[in-house]
Nucleic acid binder design. Structure first.
Lengths: 348, 348
DNA sequence: CATAGATGCTAATACGTATTAGCGCGGTGG
DNA sequence: CCACCGCGCTAATACGTATTAGCATCTATG
């Protein structure tokens, strides 16, 4: 194999066109400020040489010299492999990709970030953040300390999902879980339910808190509105608890837990929603096979992806300072796991 | 917003540690050649300052100065949006991502490449290829002229899918369609089929040619082994043709066409494989809803993704010169659309 | 004809890192 | 006492682009 021919640079263009490198740069960037003047014939000559040589600017040097790169970084907190949550994140990426394409940006996936204690780290020995103009942060749980540092460094970023302040407001594009859960709870109340239980995952993430907040706000008119924690593996115990309590509708944060609850109920000869209504609070984060059409809502994942790019570009160029925190509405899904409470169970 | 604090550079580290910038660079890169010597205490001092300041090398400057970046480019020929073929490409990306993570590389998706005549172009005004150390090329049809140019420029790349030479051998990781189709054809012959028809897409892509080659190689012992072209929208006409010919088994290149053929047959009261056997030649490239378990084979898409990264890293560092073209075996899927030919139809 | 202003371009420099030739210093052998 | 060598480090430069101050040259004006 012969040595790769050195790439064509502006200096080569300049030599061929009989001008200086600076002139080539000016022509390339279409600089037509009052201060910058290039004779049309010179410009044409330079452009002709550029076309002949097939020259293309080195984006690395460009980035080093000036400020921007048109590269958007994407950082995923969850370790990529092995992980069932990939399918959950895919729609976000599709939205990001779509909008990045529209605005002519490339996407840099920080797959090299090391995993420590089961979580990717942004900041580490060989931090590569600066390769991109800014960065989109994906992940259920985002490290507050790292957000602090991003803010302190003035590095442009946006989180997908609402985040609490971290040494300053955190730009984000989130889903409006509070409103969605609130609506579902009010729907259940209108169906006549009076004993509600929120089955959480024991997570303190903002997304979990928002859901609980929406639930609590609606639950004031209920006879009982509890909160418990459960995981899919523990569905039988959870079901026991719900039945003992006389709960008529369960708001289940984790989709897999809802599926497990439903099958546990079915195994005992109970029907959903006949004996127990189950409402889910978001798309499955791990693939769960089920034929049940759960009542719940959809997270607008693709749209969140798109808008996160939009917000990020605003953060990068310093515009749109007021619109850097967005909550998008979730579409309710009617499903058929929310019914009217069984009168026999309702008043016990 | 205050002006972003200028990032910490090696010069800052050098000043704080009382050494020169060169020394900082040497320490950072763990240079311990015979020619390079740094006193342990100096090294420690520098490392301490680095830790205190949280310094991280600017990857852009690093790339400009030296050669490598640990960034792998991914170029997708198909326009990303709107496109049903996304689901087809996703597994490749998963494999690529997994291996990139393993070798500590980031992934740059060239979403900014403009679409001309329905196809993305690598080479254009503001070509960004050089941001990455090398590039993986994804897509059904890859432009031969662009491959030529990549070869000429000495740019490291690897194609996913076998490619003909283009001014030199093209590094690739492909699927061994020829062998897979050959096996299927021989299986059909063993089942007693004697009138075969290959239903192609009229594509001249290497992947299509490989399939046809495998088919032809096996078909020598058949009574009739034709080739026709058809698309899913034209399934009825194709079915007419197959029946008129007395074909007992159709090898259908395009998955969607196979699905359409099967439902056309069913609409006419024919059964598959009772009246006609149908064999598919690869995974669906566009999402097609079907409950049929077609006989055919699986393209090892994730593995192709993984190995493409492996080959690319070899191309980049110039090693493994002999192993730059790989064909991976496809797993046959038994399915239930290949039966024994109906004797009434068989001899006509 | 001197001067001012406009025009068209270039020289110089910055960006942050990697690399390499070579400098000063202390020790050792003759 | 000099020559030489190994050690530890630094000065200088390269990478390719963007930016800016300012130098010629020309034109218009008094």
């Amino acid at each position: 194999m012969t040595a790769p021919p050195r790439r064509v640079t502006q200096r080569d263009i300049a030599r061929l066109a009989g001008v200086s490198q600076a002139t080539v740069s000016l022509v390339l960037n279409n600089r037509a400020d009052a201060e910058i003047r290039i004779a049309p014939e010179t410009r044409d000559r330079v452009l002709r040489v550029i076309a002949e040589t097939g020259y293309a600017a080195d984006p690395v040097a460009r980035r080093l010299a000036s400020r921007f790169n048109r590269i958007i970084g994407v950082f995923t907190y969850e370790p990529a492999f092995p992980s069932g949550s990939r399918d959950f994140f895919h729609p976000f990426l599709l939205g990001i990709e779509e909008y990045a394409e529209r605005v002519g940006c490339d996407l840099l996936l920080f797959t090299s970030a090391p995993v420590v204690d089961g979580r990717r780290r942004i900041f580490h020995q060989d931090n590569r953040l600066r390769l991109a103009d800014g960065c989109i942060l994906l992940g259920r749980e985002v490290d507050g300390a790292e957000l602090h540092r991003l803010n302190r460094d003035g590095y442009p970023y946006v989180a997908v999902g609402r985040r609490d302040d971290a040494g300053g407001p955190v730009p984000y594009v989130g889903a409006d879980y509070a409103t969605a859960v609130n609506r579902l709870a009010e729907l259940a109340l209108r169906h006549g339910h009076r004993r509600l239980t929120y089955v959480g995952m024991g997570s303190t993430a903002e997304s979990s808190e928002d859901r609980r907040r929406g639930y609590q706000a609606a639950a004031t008119t209920a006879e009982s509105a509890r909160q418990v924690s459960a995981v899919a593996e523990d569905a039988d115990a959870c079901l026991d608890d719900l039945l003992a309590d006389g709960t008529t509708v369960a708001f289940v944060e984790d989709f897999a837990t809802a599926v497990a609850l439903e099958s546990a109920a079915r195994r005992r000869g109970l029907t959903v929603p006949g004996d127990l209504s189950i409402v889910t609070l978001g798309d499955p984060t791990v693939p769960v096979p089920t034929d049940i059409a759960f009542t719940g809502f959809l997270i607008p994942r693709e749209e969140m992806g798109r808008q996160s790019v939009e917000v990020l570009t605003g953060v990068i160029d310093g515009s749109a300072a007021g619109l850097q925190q967005r909550l998008l509405p979730c579409e309710l899904v009617e499903g058929n796991t929310l019914g009217t409470p069984d009168p026999a169970v309702d008043r016990r």
